[in-house]
């Protein structure tokens, strides 16, 4: 009997598919940071503020070392990281800026009323335009932006105490001492 090789096609396709999924998996897992965003200036934007009629632009982010946190009310992990962000803002002396991503402003305000608002201000990004410029995968993501408005670090996923101690704090210390 001659071997009908075409019957192997489904298996080969499946293996390729699995490789892709596995690859996607390893990429996603360690909250890696794509290199090209690092050391690029924070993108230009002009969006409204969550509480006032004020327009927020890139100028508002520049000046101090800032943690820009992309969050949304529909994102369970944002709630998980919220206590740690609150602690960082209160005790570590770091300015926290929120990007409210693909959300409804009323929901966002309610969420903040309930859970507390440690942020200096929030940029309303309902269409996700700023998030696209930032290359956001999904909420939450946190960017370290330096005094010149350059993105220096990017963390995908919730900011836990561990993440703060191991990565964010050292990065911020380094930026603070170098400046």
């Amino acid at each position: 009997m001659t071997l009908n090789k075409s019957l192997l096609i489904p298996l080969v396709v499946f293996i390729l598919l699995i490789l892709l999924l596995a690859l996607g998996f390893t990429l996603k897992d360690p909250h890696f940071l794509p290199s090209e965003l690092i050391d690029k200036p924070f993108p230009e934007f002009s969006l409204s503020d969550l509480y006032s009629a004020k327009t927020r632009t890139r100028e508002d982010v520049i000046g101090d070392i800032v943690l820009v946190n992309v969050w949304a009310t529909w994102c369970p992990n944002c709630l998980i990281e919220h206590p740690e962000l609150t602690r960082i803002a209160a005790h570590e002396g770091v300015t926290l800026v929120g990007v409210n991503y693909n959300d409804e402003s009323a929901k966002a305000r309610n969420w903040l009323r309930r859970h507390g608002d440690p942020y200096s201000f929030h940029i309303v990004d309902n269409d996700g335009r700023l998030a696209i410029d930032l290359g956001v995968y999904g909420a939450p993501e946190t960017f370290v932006v330096d005094q010149q408005g350059v993105i220096r670090y990017r963390h995908v996923g919730p900011v836990t105490r561990d993440v703060w101690q191991r990565t964010l704090a050292p990065v911020i210390d380094l930026l603070g001492s170098g400046a």
Partner: peptide
Amino acid sequence: LVFLVLVIGSSLTLYAVRAQG
């Protein structure tokens, strides 16, 4: 993912072997 590999992978292997001829 592992479950997919085991179940579908072995099914398709079985298919490639047994659907011959």
